[in-house]
Simulated assay, not measured.
Amino acid sequence: MTDLIFKRLTPLLIGFVIWGLAVALQVRADLGLSPWDVFHQGLGHHLGIGIGWAGAVTSIGVLLLWIPLKMKPGIGTILNALVIGPSAEFFLKFVETPDNIVIRWAFMLGGIVLMALGSALYLPARLGTGPRDGVMVGLNKKFEFSIRLSRTIVEVAALIIGFFLGGTVGLGTLVIAVGLGPTVQAMLQARRWLVERVTGVPQSVL
């Protein structure tokens, strides 16, 4: 139990909070959001709630799609739904949109780095996929779609629906789409190197 809490659960929660901060920075950058955050923001406009709360509502709704896909959530899945959105709402109270375009881009790029850092903390915990990633995995298992195709279907659908709901799509959206994956991989490699240096135990990279 101690191993679960300190070596897996704590990094997971910290990673989710960091991801919430990243979302807040990208919202305030006002240069475009990730596909799912475009959806969350658009949904929030229509429901009269913030992007973080809309993200939590979406997570619950997406989990319902797990039923026909025969997916089972883990503790990480539930915490993903409960922590990231409220964390984003918390940080949005303290972060304002800068007037300077350079600072806005710093917010955008910093958000990508923080998303990668958050991912490097919570992915190795292996306590369950996020609600949205679970749909991707479910499509892969049920219909034998490739992971790449499954992710594309889910992300593009979220982006298109979010755009028509009024979510912010911009150059930043493209930058996130192109830059997040490689940044996450680099952060996972850095985490592995650091843990190996400290513990001397070989680590795997997702």
Rank of each mutant, 00 (worst) to 15 (best):
A157V: 15
A81I: 05
L123G: 02
W19M: 15
E89K: 03
E155D: 11
L69D: 08
M187I: 15
W53C: 03
K141N: 13
L206C: 09
G111Y: 12
L171Q: 13
V201M: 11
A116C: 03
W36P: 04
Q41D: 03
W36Q: 13
T129I: 10
V198F: 13
Q41Y: 04
T183S: 05
P182M: 06
S150L: 03
T77C: 05
N100F: 06
F90N: 03
G55M: 01
R8W: 07
A106C: 12
M136I: 11
L109W: 10
F39M: 02
G20V: 03
I49P: 04
T173M: 01
G55Y: 05
T168G: 06
I147W: 07
L180V: 04
M187L: 13
S34H: 08
F107Y: 15
V205Q: 13
A186P: 06
T58H: 09
L64R: 12
T168K: 14
V184A: 12
A88Y: 07
I18P: 08
D99N: 14
G20I: 08
K70P: 00
G138E: 11
P73C: 06
A177V: 15
V23P: 02
A29Q: 10
V83L: 07
V154A: 05
L123P: 03
L149T: 15
T58R: 05
M187C: 15
I5T: 11
A81Y: 02
V57S: 02
T10I: 14
L109H: 07
T173P: 05
L12D: 00
V175H: 06
D133G: 02
L82Y: 07
G42R: 09
Y122V: 03
R28S: 14
L149G: 04
A190W: 14
L194M: 13
V198C: 08
S146E: 09
Q26G: 07
R8M: 02
I161W: 05
G52A: 03
M1S: 14
H40Y: 12
N140Q: 14
L149N: 13
G15W: 08
L79W: 00
T58Q: 13
I75D: 05
L165W: 08
L206I: 15
T77I: 11
A88S: 09
G128Q: 08
Q26A: 01
W19K: 11
A190L: 14
D3K: 13
G118A: 06
V23M: 01
G61R: 03
I60V: 15
I67P: 02
A157I: 15
F39R: 00
S204R: 09
Q203L: 00
A177H: 10
F6A: 00
L13H: 06
G42D: 09
L194R: 12
V184H: 09
F90K: 02
W36M: 14
A120N: 02
L92D: 02
V184T: 15
Q185I: 09
Q203R: 06
S59I: 14
V195Q: 10
G74D: 11
T168P: 05
F107V: 05
R197W: 13
K70V: 10
D30W: 02
Q41W: 08
F107W: 10
V113M: 12
T168A: 13
T129Q: 10
T152K: 01
A186E: 14
